[in-house]
Design a protein around this nucleic acid. Structure first.
Lengths: 157, 157
DNA sequence: GTTGAAAAGTGCTGCGA
DNA sequence: TCGCAGCACTTTTCAAC
């Protein structure tokens, strides 16, 4: 595997450590060290460096929303009356806990959001009471996910 | 905090453990045990149970894609010629490593995908060569993210 | 199911090359 | 700068409640 040099501050070893840990963050340093034929201390130093650089932001549990009673996943295309209302709208939408991801986008919609709800009743409540009530939001379009066919991280080459 | 009973198999203690770990998966069991005033062993048993139940799927490193040279995040609305081509299209699209999330959705688009690329050149390559070449895909609409304003997990009440 | 402590394994730090 | 070895900490296990 050659060094593709995505970033001049990351070398081949860093990239390989990331690749392994991105697939499963529970793999211990000692095992990574064995795989890459370096010492555990070296893995530790590299990980600290990448933390300090901000490449690694932390760790997340992967949980299955359906298993805890959140059955509906949907995407929202949100139209704003004026683009200038973006910042105020974002501040209001941050308070809506059901929104798990939000982007300011090019194209037809100003704002693109991913939302997770318990059921259709819950979704309707959130849409009507928490989202369409936000000042500056003209209308929304809802795309309900019937199946999540891919969910993964980018692969480092 | 009362038991909302999202799922009859998860009790209050399980939910509280999840809440803590979903914010930061690096917090040690011993510290969670102190917070919730139970023993470390209990945390361990509950975590094992939730793993076995499939509630917890694993752990992920949170990395900053921009810091490793992936500057572009975009959403794709994909139109299929016929809905019946969904399964074949998905299989082809799974091979496109730049796609990190994909959903089969209601609404205008059959398939909704999130894609991460190095730069606009890379994005154009992937769109032209890997995605629009897939059999059954009629056309695509691209929404490029200019700012990710929210990225979080659902909060357990 | 929970506890508390012992055993096993991991992560961290300083010294040496 | 990297690797090795010892120490501190965490996870895991298990008998007893």
């Amino acid at each position: 595997m050659e060094n593709r040099n995505h970033n001049f501050e990351l070398d081949n070893l860093d990239t390989q450590i990331l690749s392994i840990l991105m697939e499963d963050a529970t793999i211990p340093y000692t095992e990574i060290a064995k795989k890459l034929i370096v010492s555990g201390g070296t893995i530790h130093v590299r990980m600290k460096k990448m933390h300090d650089m901000g490449v690694i932001r932390g760790a997340n549990l992967i949980i299955d929303p359906q298993k805890i009673g959140y059955d509906i996943c949907a995407f929202l295309g949100i139209y704003l009356e004026k683009g200038s209302q973006y910042h105020d709208a974002v501040e209001s939408l941050k308070k809506v806990k059901e929104i798990v991801e939000m982007h300011y986008c090019t194209g037809a919609y100003s704002i693109f959001a991913k939302i997770i709800c318990r059921d259709t009743t819950h979704l309707r409540e959130v849409l009507n009471e928490n989202i369409q009530a936000v000042k500056g939001i003209q209308r929304t379009e809802t795309f309900i996910s019937l199946e999540e066919s891919i969910k993964r991280q980018i692969t480092l080459s």
